[in-house]
Structures are given as C-alpha cells and as structure tokens.
Design a protein around this nucleic acid. Sequence first.
DNA 1: GTGAAAGCGCTAACAG
DNA 2: CTGTTAGCGCTTTCAC
Lengths: 338, 338
Amino acid sequence: MDERLTLEKIGELAGVSRATVSRVVNDQPNVRPEVRERVLAVIAETGYQPNLAARSLASNRSGLLGLIIPRILHSLFTDPYYPRLLQGVTQVCNEYDVILSLFMFHSEDEETRLYPRVLRPGMLDGVVVVSSQEEDPLIARLAASDMPFIVIGRPTDATAVSYVDVDNVTGAETAVSHLISLGRRRIATITGRQDMSAGVDRLAGYRQALQTHDLPIDENLIASGEFDEVAAYNALLRLLPQQPDAVFAASDAMALGALKALHAAGLDVPGDVAVVGYDDLPAAAIATPPLTTVRQPIRRFGALAVETLLDIIETGPEPPRHILLPTELVIRETCGGS
Amino acid sequence: MDERLTLEKIGELAGVSRATVSRVVNDQPNVRPEVRERVLAVIAETGYQPNLAARSLASNRSGLLGLIIPRILHSLFTDPYYPRLLQGVTQVCNEYDVILSLFMFHSEDEETRLYPRVLRPGMLDGVVVVSSQEEDPLIARLAASDMPFIVIGRPTDATAVSYVDVDNVTGAETAVSHLISLGRRRIATITGRQDMSAGVDRLAGYRQALQTHDLPIDENLIASGEFDEVAAYNALLRLLPQQPDAVFAASDAMALGALKALHAAGLDVPGDVAVVGYDDLPAAAIATPPLTTVRQPIRRFGALAVETLLDIIETGPEPPRHILLPTELVIRETCGGS
DNA sequence: GTGAAAGCGCTAACAG
DNA sequence: CTGTTAGCGCTTTCAC
C-alpha cells in the first residue's frame, strides 16, 4: 500500500498500457467497455489517484482556482460576509472538483510582492478577485495577462471585465423608497466607504430614491460610517442635531451601531427615528427592535462567480459577463411600517 | 513576452546551463557570485517565474498547504472566528511563500467524497485541520497516511497527534473564578456544543472553578446554548427560575444572547446578574453594558498552526507538538467588578 | 481501440 | 563551480 501508484502500475495490473488507463481515468472515448471496466476495478481496488503535478505539467491545466481577497478591510471582518462568500465559492468548487487556493493580503507590500505569484505559470487555471477598493491594480494586471478571471463586486472600469455583483443601487433605492412611502421625510444615511463600489452605489441609490420622490438632498443628512459599527455609532451622533426621522445605513453592522446610538440618546425606534440596514446579517433579525434590511444573496453570489469563471475558462473571456443579482427588502420593525 | 519562459531559455539568455539557473532560483550554493548576478538580472528583466507544476513533479514538493474546515457550523459563521483564523494562517503562508488551499465541506457526503482528494499525491505538502467535532474521521485517515498535518483545536485522542489550541479549561476557570471573587455564588453557565472540545473544556473549567472554591455544582444552573446567540437567549430564559446571580457563557455570541434575554426580563446587568463571555468579539466591547470576556488569540493561533506544520514538514512528525495558548480575561462592565 | 514514444519544465545526482 | 543526464507521472500525438 505504501509504494507509489502510477498509471504505469495500474496498467500493469490491468494488463493494458498506461495510455489506456489514462483514457479511462479521464473519461475519454475509444476504450472497449470491457477493458474500461477492468481498469476501473483495479483503480477502485488500489485506491489510485492521479498525481496532480504530473497531470498539470503534461496537460497545462492544474485544476486549481484562486480566490483573491485584497487588503483586508477590518469592517468586512466583523460581518459574516467572507464566510458566506467562501461557502458559496467552496460549494461550487467541490461540485466541479476543482481546488480553491486562497490568497489574502494584509498590506500593500504583501500585495505587490505576491501578485506575481498569482500569475505564476503552471499554477492556477483562473482566479476570482474580491474587489475591495476601486481601481485594484491586480485587475489591470489580470486583464493584461491571459489568466481567466472574474471580479466579485463591480470594478470602476467595468465594461471590459467580467464581474458579478449585487445591484446595490436598486437595493438602496428600494430601501429608501420604502421609508418615504411610510411618510418619512428627513431621511439621513450613514454611508459605507466611498472607495468601494458597494459604498458608492448604496449612496447613489439613496440619492436616487430622494430624487425620484422629489425630496431635497440635504448633505448634512449624509454621514460617513466606513462600514464599521463603531464609526456608525459616532456618525449617528453627528447626525442627531439635524433631527432626522429615518436613517438608512449602508450595512447592518452600521445600522446596529446606529440603533445603539439612538437608544443611548433616548430616542425611540421606530417612533422617533426609523432605521433600515443592508446585508441581513443574522444579528439583524434579533436586534431590538428587529432590523428592516436589504438582503443580499451572498452565498449564491460566490457560487455564481465560480460557475461563471469556469465558463470563462472553458469558452474564453468574450463577451465579458456582467451579472447583477437582485436584492430583497426584508421588512421588520425598525422601519415602523409594513 | 508571450512565449513561455523556461529555465532553459533563461540559461540561454544568461549564457549558462539550465542547472545553474535552477541553482540561482533556488538560492543554492555553488554558483560564482558574478554568474549569479548575471542570471538574476535576466530573471528580473524577463519576469521569469518557475513553473510550479514542473517543480512539484520533479522535487516532490508542491509548496501548497491545505486548510480543512469540516462541516460548517452555522454558529461559528456568525463569529469572526474563521476570518481571524484565516488572517493568521494566510499571513504566515505569505511570509513563507507557500500557497494555501482551502477545503470547506458542507455535508457529510461531500466530506467522505472529497477526503481522498486531500491526500492526493503530488498535491499538498501538509494540512491544517480545523477540528470542529470530536473524532473527526479525517484525523484518523491523516494519521494513517504519511501526510504531515496539524489540528487546530485539540482532538479527543490527542496524544499522538500534533495540535494547537487555546487553553479553554484555564480560560473558563479564570472567568468563573473572577465571578466568585466578586462575591457571586449562584453562577450559571450556558454551554457550547458538547461535541466540540471548546464546548467541553469550557464547561470543565466552569466546574473546576466551582470545585476549587468549594462551591456546589448545581446541574440546574447549566444550560445548553449550542454556541448560538438565539439558543443562548432561550437557554437564559430557562435558567432564570433558578435565580442565578451570574452567568458564564461559553462564547460571546451566547453572552450577547443572554444579555438580550436579561434585558427583556427586566433584570439589571451587572446589578442583578453578572455576565461573562468568551472570545472577545468586536461586538463584546460595544455591547450594553460592555461585556467582560475571555480573549483568545485566534489570529496568533492560526499563525502558529502553520508555523508548526511547516516545522513538522521539515523535521518530521515526532515528537507530536502539543501547543496550548493562554487566554486573557478582559474585564469590562458586565461582571460588575474590576 | 490500443500501445509506443515524445515531451511538459523542473530538480538532482553525477561527472568534470 | 558548472554542465550533462536522467527521470518525476502524466497527456497526447501518431502509428498500428
């Protein structure tokens, strides 16, 4: 059991050549059913597994996909965003029998030092990039290489690049429109980071909803929360003097921070101020009061990214795939309506 | 720029043989400094990167490490536990220039189907296994193979296996002892899952602290919270009739659930009931009131696992490494003392 | 259908 | 110190 099994050895045991075994292993035609059976039996008996490195060298395909998570944003790490995403990604990888390599960078130095490794020959068949900031230099590099890739989260110069994203503009617009329809008029927003398209788009959705309903946009009702609970807590405190009657937070983490600040200020939710979040974290459902929020299909999203990447590897990068997933408004109690 | 660069080609350009280039690339001795320089220059100019598959095939080392996360526990996914762990793990991987392959399983079927892939020849140099439940069958398989591995979280039959873990028993004991020292006498606990060593050990620490201080152990003060916030909320409600004056929750997520239940029941924390958690999640610091908790060095922990694995790969599995990291009691307001 | 043979790009003795 | 020579285990023409 200890001796290394090779195609050659399996062939020997089955009384065929190594080439035939290879055909069987790779489900290729041109093998007599009876022979195939015999080979399969030997493989099952011996527990033979083809050597990945050798296969990769000979076929120029590694069976490895890369998932690249650029410089970690602390805020995203207090969310279950990445875990969810990873669930979706790994699930599809398992389904298609590809292996996922995870690249997480912790500093700009590390990024620049390690980017070349990603493009290393004989390594990855394709990569999924989580775009955390606009204008990620890696995306330009990937676009210049012939490595198949897809971006999670629409990059700035998106037209030529394949991506999957949630429709953040529409999601935010729906949330704010709902507040308007409930009679709120001084709707504040706590924005996410403006170097991330999710932050930008959700703010755009907020503005768009106000415009559509002919409501004025008061810049004093817009405060930056950096996608962070504590920052949002403070942002809400800054917003309070403007006497908003509703707050749209661009993430649940921030909405939770806002709720805490509202409680601390002795204000009633939704009586005095309505709150809507974004993400539908598990914590949203058990907040006090339960948080109205925009649900993103994060897991599906990761899954779809991999499926699309696999398709790109198969059929080429053209045309660029632009996939926007719809969100869903989950109405709970903090918006004060139904 | 499009033609594939190989050792041969670099050698040609530098006027040396492929073997010399290989020596330079691998930082081996026996190359005249002057020649080395010349080769290095060509490599820098051309941006040559050795082909991983070829190297792996020839040297029988892939430069890949596996991280295996068995069947996902929903509860752990609402924590930033995995993200933190991944940060530690990837940081060390980056440092040592090894690539991390992530295996996440979502069902028992997937597990059994994919375990063999992990042990596939020509694939991984070693694996880190996150042990989520006692008696993971993969650990037995790994132990029977000659794949170097290390377990995060002490497995049940731990003696022969290398692992890193936090000292959960001592951590819990310290927390409960602190409550005792503050004069609490009817100390309840909300336990984590008892099929995970963290759950078992933290309960053991609780019992031990009571015993050490000659306090009776009342089984009615022990409720199961499954490491889940909602389950803990309900667990606390069940505990309330026993009139505890303190609660030790085996995770912050559960402590947060307990806090909510306590508020809902109109009890004052820490006036009526003191609360101590475990994990020091970001949310613990901004809970109302801020949560006293046991801090685990999760990131260091992931880092140490990889470093130790690398050492095992280098020097062999003997003797088994048993590494316990100390925890730290973070005293905030829910324990009602200092 | 099947086998023989030629690499894939690299490392690792082994000469010199 | 440096080059030559074998493979590593697999895929993939190309004959038969």
